[in-house]
């Protein structure tokens, strides 16, 4: 009983984080994209338009919600929940600090990516159930994008696993605190991971599933009111989850270089959130500055460039890492003899 109570408290905490994150990202998105396009963004309600969110929520809650005729009724109702739930569960694996993680499981990375990979299923369900041509094209495209990015995404995680020797996200963070941030030895993996994260969260230049101007609103064309609200809440939460995963795997998670992880205390979540928003800012700048890919070009890029590259890079990295492990003592003594030692 106690375990269930504790678990439910975790979920409620994560839900609060998710809602706060959604409202922060939508404001940030409007302002950052506005600045990128030389516009001002929201400015009417409150100072610099910070209260714009309140009428948005009221509108989402009180808008009339009609089903399209002939739609697959139950699938249409369930699709936003299918999109929303896996993202929420994926939140539970993110380490916000020392022991500040809801589900600290050994297979952390695998479980997290497995849950995130369920989202395109919901997107496909939404597009199919809407009984609209544009939605169906968006749904088909989401599957095409999934089979493109999933493999490089998983392959780019392998060097991190080799260095940390664990699939547990908390142990990966501590391994980085004991050595260096994994972005330094595995920079190509980090870049591939960020590109795949951009595809995973359906953001421009890879937003073919919604493609405003081509497909009206893609898979979410027939969705309005709170159903649309849940799809977008999941999308913003997905942003946070992918950026948080990038921070955890490559940028040292909640630790800071030169600071003992045990003494971080309440500072740890603050550091984690600041790093995560820095990565989200990077996503938004990419989103504001690149034009949309064509869907067949995306598949070509994935299969002819990213997959062979990440596969070869993973093997090269493993060879280099083993060489480093074996010759590290002699390397160290060489360095001490050259630079005169000291310690």
């Amino acid at each position: 009983m106690n375990a269930w109570l504790q678990a439910v408290l975790w979920v409620l905490m994560i839900l609060v984080v998710m809602l706060a994150n959604g409202s922060l990202i939508i404001y940030m998105l409007r302002k950052v994209l506005g600045a990128a396009h030389l516009r001002i963004g929201p400015q009417e309600l409150g100072p610099a338009g910070i209260f714009q969110l309140i009428p948005d929520i009221i509108k989402l809650l009180t808008k009339e919600d009609r089903h399209p005729n002939n739609s697959d009724r139950w699938l249409y109702i369930l699709a936003p929940i299918i999109i929303f739930l896996p993202v929420l569960v994926a939140f539970g694996f993110l380490p916000f600090g020392y022991r500040m993680v809801a589900a600290d499981i050994n297979m952390g990375i695998m479980m997290m990516i497995a849950f995130i990979a369920l989202v395109p299923l919901g997107v496909f369900a939404a597009g199919w159930a809407s009984h609209n041509k544009y939605s169906l094209i968006g749904a088909i495209r989401s599957i095409a994008a999934t089979i493109t990015y999933e493999i490089p995404l998983l392959l780019s995680v392998i060097p991190v696993v080799i260095m940390a020797g664990s699939l547990n996200l908390s142990e990966i963070v501590l391994a980085q605190a004991n050595s260096i941030w994994f972005v330094i030895p595995a920079l190509p993996s980090a870049i591939i991971f960020l590109i795949c994260a951009q595809m995973e969260t359906n953001q421009a230049p890879f937003d073919m599933t919604e493609a405003e101007g081509e497909l009206v609103a893609g898979f979410s064309t027939e969705y309005s009111a709170m159903r649309f609200g849940f799809i977008f809440l999941a999308e913003f939460a997905g942003n946070f989850v992918l950026a948080g995963l990038a921070v955890t795997l490559f940028l040292g998670g909640w630790t800071l270089p030169g600071v003992d992880p045990a003494t971080m205390g309440i500072l740890a979540p603050v550091v984690f959130v600041i790093k995560t928003y820095a990565v989200i800012f990077l996503f938004m700048m990419v989103r504001g500055n690149f034009s949309r890919f064509r869907i067949d070009r995306l598949a070509q890029m994935g299969w002819k460039r990213m997959i062979p590259f990440t596969l070869v890079w993973t093997i090269v990295f493993a060879i280099g890492y083993r060489a480093f492990q074996l010759w590290q003592p002699s390397l160290g003594s060489l360095l001490t003899s050259v630079f005169g030692g000291g310690g």
């Binding site: 678990a7 809650l61 009180t62 739930l85 929420l88 589900a103 159903r227």
Partner: peptide, 25 residues
Amino acid sequence: VVIASFIIVGAAFACIGLGLSWLLS
């Protein structure tokens, strides 16, 4: 238990949100 409660509470949250919209609209 945590993962199960994430799914259960998350589904309940989604139902509350959609139900609220259904009541108000």
